[in-house]
Amino acid sequence: MNTISSHMVGLLEKLYRGCGYLAALCIFTMLVVIVVQVVMRWSGVTFPGATNYAGYLMGASIFLAAAYTFHEGGHIRVSLLVERLGRLRPLGEQWCLLVALSINGFITWHAFDATYWSWRFGDVSSGQDAIALWIPQSIFAFGSLVFTISILDHAIRSLAILRSACNHCRDSQPVRNNL
């Protein structure tokens, strides 16, 4: 049981980190696209759709990096109240994670739904790239799915802490977790 869950944890961390690397790659590619566009303009050639591609790459990097950023504590929050909850803190954390999970689950659901309908309707970008929109949209959907998984992952871990806190109710000090 323990080895399975630690194996799972390892896999998930790899997933977040992997998505983080992909996000970094997107930013790097975005730089290349923009520089190529500038240099091509200097030499009197156009790069149709360059601004659209740069936009998609940025969107992809934002959503791919979301889970990694979350896992590393990079998304910001007002932690004043939660930190003052003392031994009730795990409960507070659980509330935050559940709210975050439902909001992000909602986003992910609609990201997949919208991507599916883009694909069904054959939606194309109105820019010069004229790309089928489901392609960049599916990266968005994938990124927000991984983000949801990471929130769920943290919620489950926090639940475990909450349970052990209840078990040791009598002799425990305020419980901290690393979120």
Binding site: Q37, R41, G44, T46, F47, P48, A50, T51, Q128, A130
Partner: peptide, 22 residues
């Protein structure tokens, strides 16, 4: 300044250099 494929083509046929500017 071209803002879509048609205006870019127009520039080419005029012998101008199409430039994409948002």
């Amino acid at each position: 300044r071209a803002y879509n494929t048609a205006t870019a083509r127009f520039a080419e046929l005029m012998g101008m250099t199409p430039t994409l500017i948002e």
